[in-house]
Amino acid sequence: MTITLEGIEKQFKDVPVLRGIDLSLAPGCVTALIGASGSGKTTLLNIIAGLVAPSAGRVLFNGQDVTPLDAADRRIGYVFQSFALFPHLSVLDNVAFGLRTRGVGRRERHARALVALERVRMAGYAGRRIDALSGGQRQRVALARALAPEPEILLLDEPLSALDPVLRDNIRDELREMLEPLDITTLIVTHDKADAFVLADRIVMLSGGRVLQEGTPRDLYDRPAHIEVASFFGAVNMLPEAGDGTGLDQAPVIFRPEDTGRAPSAAQADFTITIARRLYLGDRVRVRGLTSEGHELSVDLPKHTALREGEMLHLTLLKDGESAGTARAAGVRG
């Protein structure tokens, strides 16, 4: 099912939260809605779900305007950040809830709920109480509950944020495996770039209630259209384009610390820095230094690289891709 948003705006007590959002989410595509806290991503998700009414604009499912419909009538699956599992019901009855409200008989809804639980590898927990489950198990039950009524749209609000970091990595991979075969339009709200990269086919970045950029994970990481997008996804260096002379606001060259390597000689270097600081990051070292023009740069090097503060470091851009050159071509806005 295609989700189309036309001019969505939302104000809470005259405070604008969303400002003219236009988006189209393709059928079967997993999209991550990413942004910092307060960027309006959960509000947008709730507007799509029908839990919150927009102040202006329309929500369309397959071209049909569903803006006036309540959440109960939109046939969506929603996984809440807190999971919002019903504590008075067993795991099976939680998963069967959406079938019960739609009048499916007890035997059939339990059979279908069991199938949904099998899909998330939780069938053995059907009779358990919710408070007897771990965070990861609750997350899976919440997903099974959202999927049991066979929705055509799946919405997930920070599905991994309630989990501890180690569990989060494992569940993220599992979630990707579970979402892949579903082939339903999925929108995931997250503030974690790793969630967005692993789970999503496309990423939409929101900031201040506006869409900053939309594209594939590689688009947003390697070809950011906005400095805020570039810095959201990790450390970034900015240099004025050589010979440009117009300053950073015009067309800076941006590249990430991992996009550099040591040049064999000063003659082959794209730039040289004087090392000011060396940070140990476990799998690599991050070196911070100043160019002769006084621009501060950060570069990542293999962790066994022997370097001292005050030493000159000749660097070259690793032009595998597309990062620096394309960023310049895209015209990054500051």
């Binding site: 779900a49 929603y78 807190s82 019903f86 019901l89 409200t101 009524p149």
Partner: peptide
């Protein structure tokens, strides 16, 4: 938790269903 009522709504539960299946229990 207000999230439980929202969850019931997204699962097709209108007012009476929310009251009977979630709030009263």
């Amino acid at each position: 938790d207000p999230g439980l009522l929202d969850a019931a709504r997204t699962l097709g539960g209108r007012g009476p269903a929310q009251a009977w299946l979630v709030v009263l229990p």
